[in-house]
Design a binder for these strands. Structure first.
Lengths: 248, 248
DNA sequence: GCCCGCCGATAACCTGGGTTAACGCGCGTC
DNA sequence: GACGCGCGTTAACCCAGGTTATCGGCGGGC
């Protein structure tokens, strides 16, 4: 992993949010400069129902937005990938709806919410991108809710793999059909609403069926994309359009 | 139900979105005037993955945002209540993420998306309200996702009743603890991810336990709010803050 | 008036996935 | 090098909730 990627204008995340506008570039760089952080895996940065002070913008590594129920079971509401900006605020904007934590080691910016919203109000292209990101997040949650409510374990897991593969792709993390999810089976289970044991059963069965291959820590190789998409009950192109915020 | 409520300045939904500003008032009234509709129960106004042309603003009656899976099972992603503005667009903003349909008979405005977004850009208070509504919707989905993924039937249903009671309240539809949900048990099941049979089993058990009372078509009376909140695993005040977009 | 379709209510039966427990492996610590 | 711990893997058991079927009531259409 490269060193301090946000300091480089050429970093894909910076380019994504600057959108080539030198004016925005300076303002954005200043926002980042003062709010960059490194966090270790599992570090919790925001607790649900505490004050929401920052939006989160990872440059490298993944975050989770999650809720924990009284018995300690965790449901992951969404992953936050490099380039995504995540605002945990609820209706009463001072309070966070969810916990935010690092999945793996993360380089990110924790930007004060007011500063970020000020940036959006004065930089129209960034604002428009933010609107598309929000809509994309809504689309993802709708898709996942459908599967959480109605679908078999196989469908849920196949869908999660498709979704995360698509989302990981824009920043070139995916070579062909082989890619790395920085997730334990436990965490994947918290995402799709299954126990880690059943995640294991299901993934193994998919591997046995020749649909995909994987090695520890979810190093995934998709062998039969058509079959995987069928299990996930999606059309890859359509899902991409619904779920990936296109820049520009 | 009163006649053509949108034509009256005093209508609570209009007041909510005008926020007393006479300028906004006129612009808002014009938006509504040209886009108002009446729809019968179950009428579908938007199909997922078709072009998203309108935002939906009900004045009376409820809408659903839902997805249908290949076997025809429907998952309700969110309800749209009087005063809520719902934009079904995805990441590629031309396409809708979800179906939108009327739950019961509905009086609403179907406002062209561009016109609505233009209104928001030129009326700051309305824009701020819209941001809070979006955040509230996110908070609701996060809460419901937690329960879809992890919780028992009892918890899911108790939560749904609490949520819908809170949301129905702001427009004075709730007298004490008695209120009406315009839902069949089938529809409630599609909301919480349960079969209608199991919804019935669970609600009956709750009634037998003295927590609530109800009569056909979900005419609900809450007898023991504390017990219901405990089942739902919520604190009512906290949930309200997270989920209800306060005006102003 | 009759018919029909929708909804609530229940019972009987079945299964997908949770739970628990046990084992092996790789990695970091001391 | 020994130990501990997190993770993947598998097997055995069990139950919450799905499925199917049946019945009664109610409202709407003709």
């Amino acid at each position: 992993m490269e060193h301090a990627p946000w300091s480089k204008n050429g970093h894909p995340v910076a380019a994504y949010w600057n959108m080539g506008c030198p004016n925005a570039n300076a303002a954005f760089a200043e926002l980042i400069r003062v709010s960059r952080r490194d966090m270790r895996a599992r570090c919790v940065m925001q607790l649900a129902s505490e004050r929401a002070r920052h939006v989160f913008l990872p440059f490298a590594g993944w975050l989770v937005a999650a809720k924990v129920d009284p018995d300690g079971a965790r449901q992951i509401v969404d992953f936050v990938l490099p380039g995504d900006v995540f605002d945990p605020a609820t209706a009463s904007t001072a309070i966070a709806a969810v916990d935010v934590a690092a999945v793996d080691n993360v380089q990110l910016a924790m930007i004060p919410r007011k500063a970020w919203h000020g940036y959006l109000e004065t930089h129209h292209a960034a604002w428009a991108l933010s609107v598309r990101q929000t809509a994309a997040g809504y689309g993802r949650m709708a898709e996942r809710m459908l599967r959480l409510g109605k679908s078999s374990a196989e469908t849920r897991i196949a869908y999660a793999i498709c979704e995360l593969c698509l989302r990981a792709d824009p920043f070139g993390l995916v070579a062909d059909r082989a890619f790395h999810l920085p997730l334990t089976q436990q965490v994947l289970g918290e995402y799709v609403g299954l126990s880690s044991v059943h995640v294991n059963r299901t993934i193994r069965a998919m591997a046995r069926a020749g649909v995909l291959d994987y090695h520890g820590q979810l190093e995934v190789i998709i062998h039969d994309l058509a079959a995987l998409a069928a299990m996930a009950q999606i059309d890859p192109a359509e899902l991409r359009a619904a779920i990936i915020p296109s820049p520009g």
